[in-house]
């Protein structure tokens, strides 16, 4: 019986909402609430119930009657005011104040996700680092011309006997031998994302920036695997149409070393004004130098590996084609900038 009452209620409310002509409301009122209306019809069964149940049912019936009456009145009013036709839906909504995650955070999350899917572990190594990890272990002894590429900040602290001077790490590559030592035996599949610092500043270079460093060490790792990883990243981060290529380059800590290019996002490799014959530079990569493996405590006659390290900011702006004119804006706290992302 309770169910019957609820059904009648729902049916009534639905019909009332459909009404466009006020006279129809009266018809509905009689049909549901009238002496021979649907509710009273059900009420006739009440006398067969136990007193306790009877009281409860009476209460329900009254509630339902009240609800239907209320709806009839409301509908009548709204038809009278004819609000439906004058309501202005073009009025702007009131938006809640929303928060924003920084570009760099979003980029790091996306990069991490892509590499996580192929078994890379994210780590983070010191920003204030020993010369040994930043250079020495990477086959760059002091005074080596290759160090010129890394304009480095030095700390005003005493030199450590074995580890040398304290520096602000100019690249995430300093995590390479630290990760090898942490794991001790391959496989290594690291993605190291951290702040890096270089002693330079202009519209294309920042004193502080972020890099992500990939490192894979295992038995039989080859250039083919590096290419596979780069292509996997390009497809999943930049889009399914993008391809990469590697070209000869030189770094002290990889042999051979590569410059990595990706097909231009605008022309997809055909060649346009924004790229070099269809390609844009992504960053450096290479096969881990045997001396680096040795410094990480790994036997280079048994294992080989590859590594790559690129700027987070640059990679992300390339993906989103944000065309931020001055990369220094990335580290501005101007809300007009931060709220765009």
């Amino acid at each position: 019986m309770r169910e019957d009452i609820q059904t009648i209620k729902n049916e009534a409310l639905a019909q009332i909402m459909e009404v466009t002509d006020p006279s129809e409301l009266e018809t509905l009122r009689i049909a549901y609430l009238g002496r021979n209306g649907k509710l009273n019809e059900v009420m006739r069964g009440i006398k067969d119930l136990e007193p306790e149940e009877r009281r409860e049912m009476g209460q329900t019936m009254n509630e339902v009657k009240g609800a239907i009456e209320q709806e009839l009145i409301y509908r009548k009013e709204s038809l009278k005011n004819n609000t439906t036709s004058t309501f202005d839906a073009t009025v702007p909504g009131i938006k809640p104040q929303i928060g924003h995650l920084h570009l760099v955070t979003q980029a790091i999350e996306e990069i991490t996700d892509v590499f996580k899917q192929i078994g890379f572990t994210r780590v983070r190594y010191p920003e204030v680092e020993w010369d040994w990890y930043a250079f020495g272990a990477l086959n760059m002894e002091e005074g080596h011309p290759a160090r010129d590429d890394w304009e480095t900040f030095f700390m005003d602290t005493p030199t450590h006997k074995e580890n040398g001077e304290m520096v602000l790490t100019p690249h995430t590559s300093s995590g390479q031998t630290r990760e090898m030592k942490r794991l001790q035996t391959p496989p290594v599949r690291m993605i190291n994302i951290a702040k890096c610092y270089r002693r330079q500043i202009d519209s294309r270079h920042l004193t502080m920036f972020h890099q992500f460093e990939g490192l894979v060490v295992d038995k039989g790792i080859s250039i083919v695997h590096l290419k596979g990883t780069l292509d996997y990243f390009a497809r999943n981060f930049f889009g399914p149409n993008r391809k990469t290529r590697i070209r000869p380059y030189h770094f002290q800590f990889t042999e051979p070393s590569f410059e990595v290019d990706i097909t231009c996002g605008y022309c997809l490799g055909k060649g346009c004004k924004l790229c070099k014959e269809g390609w844009v530079e992504l960053g450096g990569a290479g096969m881990v130098h045997p001396i680096v493996l040795k410094n990480g405590g790994i036997d280079p006659t048994k294992y080989s590996g590859f590594a790559f390290g690129w700027g987070v900011e640059r990679t992300f702006t390339m993906k989103s084609e944000l065309s931020i004119p001055d990369i220094r804006m990335t580290y501005s706290s101007d809300l007009r900038f931060l709220r765009q992302f």
Binding site: I118, G119, T121, L183, P186, P187, V188, R189, V216, D218, K219, G220, I221, I223, V224, H225, K227, G228, T229, L230, D231, Y232, R245, I246, R247, P248, E255, P256, S257, F258, M287, H289, P290
Partner: peptide
């Protein structure tokens, strides 16, 4: 070192002529 010889052979063979495949093996 031997790796330098690898580089000479690989770059003239052409990095662009090498296939592209993900590594297999254990995940750390």
């Amino acid at each position: 070192i031997a790796e330098d010889v690898v580089e000479e052979v690989a770059r003239i063979y052409g990095y662009h002529n090498l296939p592209s495949e993900l590594m297999t093996g254990k995940i750390p």
